[in-house]
Amino acid sequence: MFPPGVGPAADPTEGGPTERAIRSFQPRRSRVTHAQRQALLRLWPRWGVEIDGRTPLDLGELFDGRPVVLEIGFGMGEATAAMAAADPATGVLAADVHTPGQGNLLRLADQAGLDNVRVANGDAILLLRDMLPAGALAGLRVFFPDPWPKTRHHKRRLIQPAFVELAAERLAPGATFHCATDWEPYAEWMLEVLNGHEGFANTAPDGGFAPRPAHRPLTRFERQGLAKGHRVRDLVFRRLP
């Protein structure tokens, strides 16, 4: 798709360890528009991060000392760009493997004159586990992850006790872990897993789901779900000291 050494790598882990855990998402190499390709060619060297599972990230250097929120899975990037524009004092490290989405987010950030967005290519679990130190993140966002609705596929869901434990290690005290889904059974699963971790406090007074925070824009995907009668659930947890 891109000349060697240009743009996001097809496999950032190539040449590294062969061990694989459950991936945070599956690669999707759909059609890249001309505008997305040009954004990747021009901006990836400056704003792109390869998740190779080997190279430690210095977030302070990458974001000029800003506190950093990691967003896992950002689709086409419209909501991510809007949140970054609304909070320029916070860095947004947005991780995904969808090449058109990577290009579109870079394009949107460039058009808006944002300097607080970096796009990470690869598996966010490797990023959390192998490339970030303890307490490095001021927040974590997981919006509308694949619900893997079939029972035999539940082990592939991102929100699992082991992942929440890893997130707890990488989030600083007071940091926010924010999830959203329009799949009710997954919402209940998330709530059970997060409420079951002693390192997090549910910000909802009743220990249930939270109202949608004003800072989370409605996404195109979310509107489609609402049009089908799906109920969107937000879960907002705070990392305890």
Rank of each mutant, 00 (worst) to 15 (best):
L194G: 00
M190K: 04
P173H: 01
W183G: 09
P185Q: 14
Q160S: 15
G207I: 08
A180D: 00
A201E: 15
A168Y: 12
H197K: 05
E169H: 06
F209K: 09
T181H: 02
E192V: 00
L191D: 01
G208T: 05
C179N: 09
C179E: 05
E184S: 11
E169I: 02
A180N: 09
E198P: 03
A172Y: 09
L158C: 08
E188N: 12
H178Q: 14
E169M: 10
L171R: 05
A172N: 10
H178V: 07
L166C: 05
A175M: 14
G208W: 00
G199R: 09
D182L: 03
A167G: 07
L171W: 04
L194N: 01
A204N: 02
E198G: 15
R157Q: 06
A175C: 13
A167R: 00
T176Q: 08
R170A: 14
F177A: 05
A210Y: 08
P205E: 15
L194V: 10
R170E: 06
A168W: 07
D182R: 09
T176D: 05
Y186T: 02
C179V: 15
A167K: 00
G207H: 10
E192P: 01
V193L: 07
T203H: 05
E188H: 13
A187L: 00
E198C: 07
E184G: 11
V164I: 12
W183R: 03
E188G: 10
L166W: 06
T203Q: 12
P211N: 15
M190H: 03
L166R: 10
A204K: 00
A201L: 13
V164G: 00
G199I: 03
N195V: 01
P211H: 12
E165Q: 13
E169Q: 11
F163E: 07
N195H: 02
A187R: 01
R170C: 13
I159E: 00
G199F: 11
A172D: 08
G199T: 04
N195R: 10
A187N: 01
L194C: 08
A204M: 08
L158F: 13
A172M: 10
Y186A: 05
P161I: 07
N195Q: 03
G196M: 11
A168R: 06
F200G: 08
F163S: 04
V164W: 00
F200W: 13
D206Q: 11
F163I: 14
A204V: 02
P173V: 03
A201R: 15
N202S: 14
W183M: 08
